[in-house]
Design a protein around this nucleic acid. Structure first.
Lengths: 150, 150
DNA sequence: TTTTAATTGTTGCAAATGCAACAAAAATGC
DNA sequence: GCATTTTTGTTGCATTTGCAACAATTAAAA
């Protein structure tokens, strides 16, 4: 069986490393860009869902979010019907930063896909989507304390 | 152009998160498994090359390696012809742990690839290999201080 | 050879990360 | 209704991570 998990890890670290260096331009520190684009594209999302989207610990997301608020990239608003949750929205500054992030991401994506045919790109994208769905349940289970057998 | 970079990040974080939780079984802390398997498969490798293999900062790798030495998973031996470099080898304990890590990885890999045909798995693996090669130069360039235009 | 540049390895520091544990609100079960 | 469980958000703590900066050795250039 072909091993994909190592290459995925290597690629992800390389891309993330590049992004973190490049987003110092925006005064964003490590990891922040991840949350900011997602909030921009999912206005009103709550922190726990966001953590779920990017597959990161709830507490890590919570702190990154609070830092984004303090830096005025996003706002954290109370919900009128539910006193427990807080909804996240980008500020104007945050929207601009999100645009920049997407430009960078598009560029990296282009570099990553160089030399692939249009069909190969499409295939890769579809396959990765499946892989993501496949792994989701295990992530939640293991994170929640369940043990897997192998 | 299809965006693959986000899914790659999500998948990588999920798999890494699972691995880190499961390898507490081996008394390995976060990240250590990455280096240990690679050393097991590339005996005699030097720390800088290892950092390059996994795409992680040299200093991070250095510390993780020193911890693996302290915990007796690997040995760091001087090179007879070059007083600057140190070569890494797994101990017996390290080899056993590496086997365990590979078993876990194979399992996660299986879960990740569920529902894909043999051909799709092969394709995915080939495409990811290309992506990895594509991104390598940019990683080194940006890490070294070069700026990209986008 | 001598000088300069690149490679290798490490430490100081600041920051991110994630597990445990907690409180508060909401959802569920009876 | 009330009790119990789940969800949401946060903080304490230990650890990892990575950039800067340094020293030591080797490689390259003059």
């Amino acid at each position: 069986m072909s091993d994909i998990l190592r290459d995925i890890g290597v690629i992800a670290r390389a891309l993330d490393s590049i992004a973190n260096i490049e987003f110092k331009e925006l005064a964003l520190t490590r990891g922040q860009y991840l949350y900011l684009v997602r909030i921009d594209e999912n206005p009103g999302i709550i922190p726990d869902r966001l953590a779920d989207l990017v597959k990161v610990d709830r507490t890590t997301a919570s702190r990154a979010i609070n830092k984004l608020v303090k830096q005025d990239f996003i706002e954290k608003n109370p919900d009128p019907d539910n006193r427990k949750i807080k909804r996240l929205f980008p500020t104007d500054k945050g929207k601009e930063a999100a645009d920049y992030i997407r430009r960078e991401n598009r560029h990296s994506n282009g570099v990553a896909l160089e030399g692939l045919t249009q069909e190969e790109k499409k295939n890769l994208s579809v396959l990765l989507e499946k892989v993501k769905n496949n792994i989701e349940a295990d992530w939640k289970a293991v994170k929640q304390g369940e043990t897997r057998e192998y």
